[in-house]
Design a protein around this nucleic acid. Structure first.
Lengths: 164, 164
DNA sequence: GAGGATACCGTCTAATCTGGATGATGCAAA
DNA sequence: TTTGCATCATCCAGATTAGACGGTATCCTC
C-alpha cells in the first residue's frame, strides 16, 4: 500500500501519504499513521524507497520509489491475490451472537447510508477522472454498501411486517 | 466474541473455542488461537469467566460464563454498533493500485466461488436449525460473496467483450 | 505390549500493529 | 505580538500476529 501510494504521488512525506490514504484506499484498507512512518522507514532501509530529509524545522522525510521499489511493486501487482479477506463487521458480529435485530439494523442503516452517499458523491464528481482501478474499487465499495443497505433494511422492516 | 462463543457452548476450553469459531463466526471475524488463550485468561482475571483446570495431563482450562460475564455480554449486545467495518480485500487493493484486471479477476473468482459454495451448502444443510442470528449472518456472507462474484465476473469478462 | 504415527492441545517468542498521547513547528488573523 | 489552529513527527504501553515448539493422548501395527 505504501509503495502504491508513493507511486501515485511521485514522492511524498508520510504525513501526505496518510492524508491521501484517508480519502481513498483507506475506505477499505486502513493503516495507522504511526505505521505509515515506520513502514516508510523500513522500506527505505530495504532499498525500495529513497529518503530525503529536511535539515531544519520539521525535518520532514520525503520518499520516492527507487528502481527496486518499482520492481517490487510491479511484482506484487503481477501476482494476483487468491485470498478474499474478511467482512469483519461489528454489527454482523452482534447479530451472530443474538443481538436484537431492530435497533441494530437501524444503527447500521444510518452509518451505511451516510457511507454510501459519500461514495456516490465521489463517484459522480470524480469518477471519470479516476484511474480505472481506483474507479472500479470505488464501484465495488458502492455495490457492497448497497448490499448492506438491503440486508439491514430487510431486518429493520421485519418487525413491522411481522407484528400485525 | 469469546464471551459469545462460550455462551453458545455452555462451557469450553480455548481449544474448543478455536474449533467452533473456525467453522462459524471465523468466516467473517477471525482471531488467532494464541489470542483466544490470552483473551480467555484476561476475561477470567476480570471476573467475566470462571476457570477450572485439570490437575494432571493436558492441564486443560475449562471456562464458563459468570454472572458478570453474562451481564457484560448482554450489555454489549444491547449497544448496537454504529461502525461498519472494512472490506479489506487484498485483490481489491491490487486492483486499486493498477493490477491487470483479467488474471486478478480469475484468481478472485476461483476463491470466491469455492467460498460461496461452502456457505450455500452449510445454509442448505443446517440453515433451518441455526439460531436466527447465525442464519442471518450466514445469509449476509452469501449475499456478499454473490456480490463479489458479480464484480469479479464482470471484470473477467470485460476483455473478451472489448477485444474484438 | 512395544513402538511409532498422528492427532490433540497449550505455550512461547519476535515482530508488528493499534490507539492515543505528546510536543514541536509554521502560518494567519486579531 | 500573541493567540489559535493546522501541520507534522515521534513515542509508548498494550494488543495482535504468525508460526514454531513441545508435550500429551490415542490408535494402529507388528
Amino acid at each position: 500500500m505504501v509503495l502504491g501510494l508513493i507511486e501515485l504521488a511521485g514522492s511524498a512525506t508520510p504525513y501526505q501519504l496518510k492524508q491521501v490514504a484517508a480519502q481513498s484506499v483507506g475506505n477499505f484498507w486502513t493503516m495507522q499513521h504511526a505505521q505509515i512512518y515506520t513502514e516508510s522507514e523500513r522500506l527505505a532501509k530495504a532499498g525500495l524507497l529513497s529518503e530525503e530529509r529536511e535539515e531544519t524545522g520539521r525535518r520532514r522525510r520525503t520518499y520516492a520509489l527507487t528502481e527496486a521499489g518499482r520492481k517490487e511493486l510491479d511484482a506484487w501487482r503481477a501476482t494476483p491475490a487468491t485470498e478474499i479477506g474478511e467482512l469483519r463487521s461489528p454489527g454482523l458480529l452482534q447479530l451472530f451472537f443474538g443481538a436484537e435485530k431492530e435497533p441494530l439494523a437501524r444503527a447500521q442503516l444510518e452509518t451505511h447510508t451516510r457511507t454510501l452517499a459519500g461514495y456516490e458523491e465521489l463517484h459522480a464528481s470524480a469518477g471519470q477522472w479516476l484511474p480505472e482501478g481506483q474507479r472500479l474499487a470505488l464501484e465495488a465499495g458502492i455495490a457492497h454498501e448497497r448490499e448492506w443497505l438491503r440486508f439491514w433494511g430487510d431486518l429493520a422492516g421485519d418487525d413491522d411486517r411481522a407484528a400485525p
